[in-house]
Design a protein around this nucleic acid. Structure first.
Lengths: 326, 326
DNA sequence: TTGTACGCGTTATCAC
DNA sequence: GTGATAACGCGTACAA
């Protein structure tokens, strides 16, 4: 590995001078600068970030913690985060938490050990000591915590919209798939939907699910129609589950949306490719990622930041699993 | 931040001793060990990985470069990699390359600057100087290069199987969607399919596509049926495109698989949730990720490794977009 | 069995 | 303008 010393030797100057031209700090004669730059190019040298990080006690690394990159909602988030960070020269240390507090804690610790300069986390435990004791900026993504910097979409509102839309399009026997109990955004959207259903005095049923996994989605769909065969409107906990419901409806010979309407949640890319394409509540995942990264960068680079709570709008995406309004 | 010095002071010993108990190297009296361990627990101390990395000239970090985490094939890969690495105490620095050589080079450089101890890359440029000059272990994932360590599934064979299956199930007017020209695995599977079609003297058409993006998939599907309305068998370049074709077929009132059979590629999780569910060529993505991580770890921790080229089997997954054999 | 001192590659301070 | 040099936190000879 070629170090700053090598460059200094080749350019015939001291390491201090090399450091100066690299960091554009302090004075340095045009000629000597040229010599140094040539040496750098010659050796294809780039400074050791680890040494830098050790001295400055901070790196260009940012920790990103997501529940499960395999759930198609999160890659969008991750991509948004990465694209924005990359523009500012930051890099990502990444981990999947599986919504597991221990795993999360373990990752956060190693993030800190690696001098990450900030953390973006999608966690169900934003108020745990892990985060409270963190001395670096942290942004919660897709999850909220009191006054802590957060970027999220309003789940309760999303749930409300889902319920309103499906009701106004004529469903009378609505079944809600309630997402995993430990996942806050899932409960928010569930609450929102229930609120509207209650307000309007609708009869409805609830199917409790315990994961968003592809593997189990089919099971929830089966159970749904076993227990409530006459349901004519399904508010799913996310697009994966909605897709499974759609498939099961087909299997049972139910016409969608004539016999049963289905509304998903997230607006994952696949939703528009289904047939019928999936009506859903859109969360602007990519933008959420970008916003979170932007907020974190502000937190890192400025001392005062105005808005540390960023709420992005959700919206109903009308496709083919809901009927048209008359 | 609490450092090894603090621990030493609190435990009333020298930093060397603390280091010894942490790393379980050298002798240390049971009593003094106890004192040190107590101090560590008291302060909730964990060693600074950056300083370690600087001294040892290598970290516990591994660089992972993927084309686009937003393509549902790659999260599976990533998850496999991460799960295995995590078991061995390694962490991931992650980047999306967008199949772009400059971006790739930029990431690899920052990986090196951060003392990553190995790299896993899904690249179209495995023979570029970037990789040849790398002095750390590298494993190519989903892509191959001569004799370099690689983990991949046989694309050519996958293409052959796709063609064989669709032919033996009765398609006569086959259209192949040829994936992006610069993506090797896409071309491999295309070649494989063409080979079989040629060998059997079938007539077939080719639609050239230039990306795997959701946004454009619909376009290719439209073009396909515009140019070859009488096609009765489609070999898609991956599951995303296959899904778009399926949707377009619906739109045109074509029955699947009666009028037109469709075979995808990858066996992305969504494939089984479509209706009709998608017949496809399965790549064991998660396992590929795990294998790649395992191979890299071997490369890092052992000096001799037997098999550095790992080829995983592809297989036909029969679902509902192909007819049953008689 | 334990402690001292040095070096890992870089930046910043302070002379010159 | 430029060059020594201390310091960042840790691991390891080597000495004790």
């Amino acid at each position: 590995m070629t170090t700053i010393k090598d460059i200094a030797r080749i350019a015939g100057v001291s390491v201090a001078t090399v450091s100066r031209v690299i960091n554009e700090s302090g004075y340095v004669n045009t000629d000597t600068r040229k010599k140094v730059e040539e040496a750098i190019k010659l050796m294809n040298y780039s400074p050791n970030e680890v040494a830098r990080s050790l001295y400055k006690r901070k790196s260009k690394l940012i920790g990103l913690l997501l529940p499960d990159i395999t759930n198609p909602f999160f890659p969008q988030l991750a991509r948004g985060v990465e694209d924005r960070l990359q523009e500012h020269g930051y890099r990502l240390i990444f981990g999947n938490s599986d919504e597991n507090e221990d795993k999360e804690l373990d990752y956060i610790r190693t993030f800190v050990q690696n001098n990450v300069i900030g953390v973006i986390s999608s966690t169900n435990f934003p108020d745990s000591d892990t985060y409270l004791n963190l001395k670096i900026p942290i942004v919660f993504l897709d999850r909220t915590s009191n006054e802590s910097p957060s970027v999220y979409a309003d789940g309760r509102e999303g749930g409300r919209i889902a319920a309103q839309e499906i009701i106004s399009r004529g469903s009378k026997q609505i079944t809600i798939l309630q997402g995993p109990a430990h996942i806050k955004p899932a409960q928010d959207r569930f609450q929102g939907a229930v609120e509207v259903l209650e307000e309007l005095g609708m009869t409805y049923h609830v199917i409790q699910t315990s994961s968003f996994s592809y593997a189990e989605a089919g099971q929830w769909a089966k159970i749904l129609f076993e227990q409530h065969i006459d349901t004519d409107g399904v508010i799913a906990s996310n697009d994966i589950v909605a897709t499974a419901v759609l498939q099961e409806a087909h299997r049972l010979g139910k016409a969608v949306p004539q016999d049963v309407q289905i509304i998903g949640y997230d607006d994952t890319p696949l939703s528009s490719l289904l047939s019928p394409s999936l009506s859903t509540i859109r969360q602007p995942a990519y933008d959420m990622g970008r916003e979170a990264a932007g907020l974190l960068i502000k937190l890192i680079e400025q001392n005062k930041v105005e808005n540390t709570i960023i709420q992005l709008p959700v919206s109903f995406v009308e496709r083919e699993t809901t009927r048209t309004m008359n």
